[in-house]
Design a protein around this nucleic acid. Structure first.
Lengths: 200, 200
DNA sequence: ACCTGAACACCGTTCAAGT
DNA sequence: ACCTGAACACCGTTCAAGT
């Protein structure tokens, strides 16, 4: 907290950092603007000179998180060519993001109907989203299905559904691990869509 | 609002009815305890003598909604034997529930870790959930896959994922309808799991 | 310019008092 | 017993005042 008076860049960075920590430690409930201010060593009102609403702070954190996910994903996306493997990799990476943000925010809906978002954050979100989908698209191109756009929707829905499933408390009911389940899903989906194509 | 003083059953029913209307009209944001009380023609504190928290009111509404879904689903579940068709029917029915409640509540997680819920509501939720899953299970038994429990998880995840997708704003981006997409998913999933079995 | 923090608004929840 | 509604607690947001 050695950030100097007037150093807006460092201040913004402070706010995002402590917000990330608060979110990780106690979930969204603990992400309170008063806590953020206190942790960042500034007054409550000051937070609002950096982020006009709590939601915009949250969107900025999410954009950062997606960036990180892509950085981690990039090497695998470039070298891996097996569609089944690609599905598993993207799904697993997204599950981690979902565990932190997904329940409250949404990778795609953030882009819609939020003209009030900081243009820089919007651009960051858009870029990340496009890249995530480009990665997933390789799964489909790898097996060349008949209706790639429909397949994209289904694959992405399954990924978010699985992420939600294993992120909620109820997954404790199950004897299957994430790895088993995602691999099983990947195999079934890839085969399902290949078959789909053969009959077209 | 002709409910008489002391008629707790009718009062509880009033509260649930107006809550349902408020939720339908303006979403969860409009479901405020003051609004509920006003619409039901009672004082704010009175609502709390029927439902100890807002969440328990919400859970009771959800249990009712699931019951209704099952009533609507029952005839189809009994007569329909085609797995693809069954998937479409269950998914479509659940999407409607999800559109009203799903974003904030969860069919399964409601049952976990909520010992504070009214036992009657808990029982109602448990019964509905079991029946929904029994219905979906028929999809799997229809094609006799190798690992039915894994397949259940994947099918259910895809259903919730699709429901989420078409319920959020972003589905406006797409040119495909719900019907097209669910049918496509159903075909792919069924084929994927059949293929799965043939190789075991 | 940048920062402060008291004050406001809103809404879930409680509880002493009413019938 | 059942119901009332003022009061409390909490938290996002604002804004006049400080440096």
């Amino acid at each position: 907290m050695a950030t100097k008076w007037g150093d807006r860049e460092a201040r913004r960075s402070d706010i995002l950092r402590v917000s990330r920590e608060l979110l990780r430690e106690n979930g969204l409930a603990a992400l309170q603007m008063r806590e953020v201010a206190r942790s960042a060593g500034i007054a409550l009102g000051t937070v609002y000179t950096y982020f006009p609403t709590k939601e915009s702070l949250y969107a900025a954190m999410y954009a950062e998180r997606l960036d990180r996910m892509l950085t981690e994903l990039e090497p695998a996306l470039e070298t891996q060519t097996d569609p089944e493997e690609l599905f598993v990799i993207v799904a697993t990476s997204y599950r981690d993001v979902y565990a932190e943000y997904g329940k409250d925010l949404d990778i795609l809906s953030v882009l819609e109907g939020r003209p009030e978002l900081d243009p820089a954050v919007r651009a960051q979100l858009a870029a990340s989203t496009i890249q995530v989908f480009a990665g997933l698209r390789k799964v489909i191109d790898g097996v060349a299905v008949g209706q790639p756009d429909l397949a994209m929707t289904v694959l992405w829905s399954t990924i978010t559904g699985l992420a939600n499933h294993f992120t909620s408390i109820r997954h404790e009911l199950h004897t299957y691990t994430w790895d088993e389940t995602v691999r099983f899903a990947a195999r079934g989906l890839v085969r399902g869509f290949i078959t789909e194509r053969q009959t077209q």
